[in-house]
Structures are given as C-alpha cells and as structure tokens.
Simulated assay, not measured.
Amino acid sequence: MARLTLSKAQLARERAALDMYRRYLPSLDLKRRQLMAERKRTEVRIVTLREEEALRVDGIGAEIPMLADTRIDLNGLATLKSVRLGERNVVGQRVPVVENIEVDIAPYGRLTRPHWVDLVATRLKEVLRIRVEMQVAAREIVLLDGAITKVTQRVNLFEKVLIPRAETNIRRLGIALGDMERSAVVNSKIGKRKREATGA
C-alpha cells in the first residue's frame, strides 16, 4: 500500500475517489443482477427445449408406430446443413443467438417409401433445430457465467477493498491533519508567549 501524503489535497482526492466508488458500485451490482436474471432465463429455456425434444422424440414413436419396421432405412434422412448465428447484447456481454438453421432432407422416392416418411423427416428436422438451440443456449450460459464472475469480482473489489481503504485513508488523514493543525496552534501560542515574555 502506497504511503499517504499528509495534505488537504490528498484528503480531497480520497474523498473524490470514495464518492466515485460509491457512485459506480450500485450500477455494477445492477449489472450483476441483470446478468444473473438472464442466466436464469436461459436455464429455463434449456429445460423447456429439453422437454420439447423429449416430447418430439417420444411422440414420434406414438405418432408413427410404423417406425418399428426396420426394413425401411431412415439413416441420413435429415442432416444439418448450416447454422447462422448472430449476437445480442446482454448488459454489455455479447451472446450468440440462432438466426437461421438449414436442415437438408435427403431426397427419397415418394413412391418407393411409405407416406409416413414425410412426417418422420419433419419431426427429425424439428429435433435437429431444438438440439442446435440447446447447444447455443449452453454456450450462452458459459459466456454469462464468465461475465457474472468478472462483474462479481469488480463488485467485491469495490465493496471489500477500495471503499474500505478510502474510508480508512480519510479517517487517517483527518486525524493526522487535525493533529497537525492543533500542533500548529499550540506552537503559535507558545511562540506568542515567548515573544511576549522577551518583549516585556
């Protein structure tokens, strides 16, 4: 810790720093809370997507019991062609957002395969979309966790280091400057008495 200069200018600097810290701390704390709320919303979205995926996957068997026929090859029917991601700003943190998902449905002969293959292709396309959205949401959680950690460290720095240090410095400077003023007054009175005593 640097030595304090015992001066009124240093006291003014410490008071200004303390005011600045107290002014910025609430906005940092608000940012942390907003990031945590966004993280919670993303967690809820992931849970919803998982439930939706399970519903789609489990629903395919109930909706299309003909899937049990293993003679019909459905491998490679739906494949992920491309994913275009964008970004959105969450309280200063850039997080990915899905802009477009392209899924290729492999060409198949409409007359050589049963009619229900169309429905299977549609459901597979939906499941692929849900899985991509879950991966992007998981990445968002990682980025938000990093941002929350960084902001929490700053909040702790202000609350536990900078503000207490500034308050301590202000107290020390106040005491030291008060002692110096009293000492100066006492010295001037002693000097005045000596002058009066020698002048008399």
Rank of each mutant, 00 (worst) to 15 (best):
L143N: 07
A12F: 07
T168M: 08
S183D: 15
E196T: 10
E87L: 01
A184I: 12
L80F: 03
A2D: 15
I64N: 00
G199Y: 15
T198D: 03
T149P: 00
E52C: 01
L144V: 05
A106C: 04
T168Y: 07
Q93N: 13
S183V: 12
F158W: 12
L4S: 01
R56I: 07
T152N: 13
A137N: 10
A12S: 09
L6W: 08
D104R: 15
E51K: 12
L6S: 07
L77S: 01
V103P: 01
A37I: 05
V120S: 00
V127E: 01
R110I: 05
I101Y: 02
L162E: 12
V127I: 15
L111D: 15
S188Y: 11
D179I: 15
D19P: 08
D179E: 09
I163M: 05
A147W: 06
P96T: 01
L11N: 04
R45Q: 10
I163G: 03
L162T: 06
W116E: 03
E43A: 05
R13G: 12
I130S: 00
V91K: 09
P164T: 04
R131L: 02
L119H: 15
T152S: 09
Q10C: 09
R110P: 05
I101M: 00
E51H: 13
P65M: 02
A138Q: 08
N75A: 14
E181W: 07
D58N: 13
I190S: 02
M1Y: 08
V57T: 15
T198R: 05
R195V: 10
L4C: 02
M180D: 12
A197I: 11
D118C: 04
I72V: 14
R88C: 04
V91M: 07
A106H: 13
A197H: 08
R3M: 10
L67K: 05
T5L: 12
V98C: 00
L85R: 15
Q10D: 12
L162Y: 11
P96K: 01
V142W: 03
M36D: 14
T122Y: 06
R32P: 01
E63D: 09
K160E: 11
R123I: 07
V95D: 02
L28A: 04
A121K: 07
L85S: 06
L67G: 02
K31H: 06
G178R: 09
R13Y: 10
V47E: 05
N156K: 13
T70Q: 04
K125N: 06
I60D: 00
G86C: 02
